[in-house]
Simulated scan of single mutants.
Amino acid sequence: MSDLLFSVENGVARITLNRPDSLNAFSTEMIELWIHALETIRDTEDIRVVVLTGNGRAFCSGGDIKSMIRGEGLLYNNTGAEDLMSTALARKNSLWKRVQRIPLLMQEIDKPVVAVIHGIALGAGLDMALMCDIRIAAQSAKVSEGYIKAGIVPGDGGAYFLPRIVGVDKALEMLWTGDTFTAEEAKQLGLITHVVPDEELNDFVENYIQRLAGGPQETMRFIKRAVYQGLHMDLRSSLDMISSAMGIVTELEDYQEGIRAIVEKRKPNFK
């Protein structure tokens, strides 16, 4: 079967990493299919929520260590060992053309993106979850930034996302030590949004994503833009942007439906 599964049903897009025998470690095929799935999600208006999961015993173990030992696949490209044996620039460009496409595409998606973590999320596997808006983890899950153990740097955006979530000092500690954290410990750090008993994980996630899928979609997308863009704006710019969004959303049918539902004391039925 394919190294990555992608489906869309009832407005919910599901990306499933599908190399269970390798704990869903990256492959060239997985990365390329991942890029294609994200482009489809970005460009399809009918998609309301995105869910990222992994098949088998783990969410994602990041880079495929066995292929690294063989001199293959460190940068998840089609040239394999040849690229690893060439120049630093070639290796840099390989990252840019493949795995680094994922965080860049994620920035272009205004819809809610939920990562569902079970088993382990290591290195780039954890970073892929950090790129998502919400992270829901099984109680038995464990996470780690393990790059230091292989003598490499976080080439996929981990050095960007991690300090914005846990702070600079804790991010450096995690990256310098490669320590492993339980789901509860990760939640205390702010890495995880919800920790759920293993046997309740699937039901919790389904209820959660249906709640998001039932919300006023354009309003939710404006909110996501305001939050992320606001991290890089001064106050005046942020207020100017959100006032423009307010002018737009109050012309939409979802606004009228929301107001009627409040007055009539019922649940709104958004488009």
Rank of each mutant, 00 (worst) to 15 (best):
S27V: 00
T28M: 06
E29S: 15
E29M: 12
M30A: 15
I31M: 13
I31A: 08
E32D: 05
E32H: 11
E32T: 09
E32K: 12
L33P: 00
L33I: 12
L33W: 13
L33T: 09
W34A: 05
W34E: 15
I35V: 13
I35M: 13
I35Y: 09
I35G: 12
H36P: 03
A37C: 14
E39R: 04
E39Y: 09
T40Q: 11
T40N: 10
T40E: 09
T40M: 05
I41Y: 11
R42F: 03
D43I: 06
D43M: 04
D43S: 07
D43Q: 06
T44G: 13
T44E: 11
E45V: 02
E45W: 02
D46R: 08
D46I: 02
I47M: 05
I47V: 15
I47A: 09
R48D: 01
V49M: 09
V50Q: 02
V50I: 08
V51R: 10
V51K: 07
G54L: 05
G54H: 03
N55R: 14
N55W: 02
N55G: 13
G56N: 03
F59A: 10
F59N: 11
F59G: 08
C60L: 05
C60T: 03
S61R: 04
S61W: 09
G62P: 01
G63V: 11
D64V: 00
I65L: 00
K66H: 05
K66E: 15
K66P: 13
K66I: 14
S67I: 07
S67E: 09
S67V: 06
M68E: 09
M68T: 04
I69N: 02
I69S: 02
I69Q: 00
I69V: 11
I69G: 01
I69H: 06
I69Y: 00
I69L: 12
R70I: 02
G71T: 01
G71K: 01
E72S: 10
G73L: 02
G73P: 14
L74I: 07
L74G: 06
Y76H: 04
N77E: 10
N77C: 11
N78V: 06
N78M: 11
N78S: 08
T79R: 03
G80E: 04
A81Q: 08
A81T: 11
A81G: 12
E82K: 15
E82F: 13
E82N: 10
D83G: 07
D83F: 05
L84P: 05
L84C: 09
L84W: 11
L84A: 04
M85H: 06
S86T: 12
S86W: 13
T87L: 10
T87K: 14
A88P: 15
L89S: 15
L89K: 13
A90F: 12
A90D: 12
A90P: 01
A90C: 08
R91C: 12
K92R: 15
K92N: 10
K92G: 07
N93C: 12
N93W: 14
N93Q: 08
N93K: 09
S94N: 10
S94W: 00
S94F: 02
S94V: 02
L95I: 10
L95R: 06
L95P: 13
L95N: 08
L95K: 07
W96E: 15
W96D: 15
K97Q: 15
K97G: 14
K97H: 15
R98W: 04
R98I: 05
